[in-house]
Write a protein that binds this DNA or RNA. Structure first.
Lengths: 153, 153
DNA sequence: TCCTTAGATTATAATCATTATAAATAAAGA
DNA sequence: TCTTTATTTATAATGATTATAATCTAAGGA
């Protein structure tokens, strides 16, 4: 965990930014909620517990900075709020998401799965792919289980 | 073109909505700009040319209604504005997008390309896919041509 | 025809997420 | 220490979207 923060510190320094206490607190929250797809507001509320004097604008600035340095990814599921995800270290590509239309849960897929598709797209459309966003909307296994259980009662 | 509007009229009636003049004007604008990924504001400004008395709220309501009936798709490229696309008639799946990080152009891919990926995801994650969103970020052929031309000068 | 009712629309205000601003603070270097 | 620069804070502003209330319109009956 500490080494993870140290590496982020180095990344900041490499771009001549500092890991201020506020920034460190924000990163810690992101590390503690790596699975969670937090919004800026979510991060703000959580950071306030460990650094009560922090302001919302600072959280926004920090998240933007981290996004710029590709330490976090900013995603958008269409509900009007941006969400921030710590990048997997060494991940060449953005991971994918499964959004459940029943319960709203968001699961992640770490595998790439798109290599073949990207080859086709690059050739056919003469488009040099740098990144991708793939989200599936559907019914998650939890809701699936729940409804088949309901049916059998 | 007229038949296209007639069919949309039927879809509305089937859900017991009417194709009012304002709604028709909005649909016409969408038809005329099928390639364009308009925002609500864009649609509003264009509709005002053919129906000057229309209000922004009506445009929003109409777009929301059309989205609900799956006549248009609401997309989100992460720039804080929702964009509205007329669905291809008979399209089983949402089309994909190529967003150029140089010039901001958005091109469309009509092919599905994801069939294999979806089979894998449904099996491996026990997730019943209903729809998907796939966007590639990269350099479009126009910017690519432009920069290789610059280099040769 | 007139009345009633329900649906649509308009203008406007309100809301929510996000960004900009200006003053205050802290840290780094000379 | 003094000066410069980056950073943060609180607050105001912005921009997209949604809600509200008043008004309008069309359809169906008496």
């Amino acid at each position: 965990m500490e080494t993870r923060i140290d590496r982020i510190k180095k990344q900041l320094h490499a771009a001549s930014y500092k890991l201020t206490p506020q920034r460190e607190a924000t990163v810690r929250i992101l590390l503690e909620h790596e699975e969670d797809h937090l919004s800026a507001e979510d991060v703000y509320l959580l950071v306030k517990d460990i650094a009560p004097e922090i302001g919302l604008a600072t959280v926004y600035r920090t998240l933007e900075l981290l996004t710029e340095l590709k330490i976090v990814d900013k995603i958008n599921f269409g509900d009007g709020v941006s969400r921030y995800d710590l990048r997997q270290e060494g991940a060449a590509h953005f991971h994918h998401h499964l959004v459940c239309i029943e319960c709203g849960a968001v699961d992640e897929i770490q595998e790439d799965l798109l290599e073949d598709v990207e080859t086709v797209v690059e050739k056919r459309f003469n488009f040099q792919i740098k990144d991708h966003r793939l989200t599936f909307h559907g019914i998650c296994w939890r809701c699936h289980d729940r409804s088949s259980q309901d049916a059998s009662e």
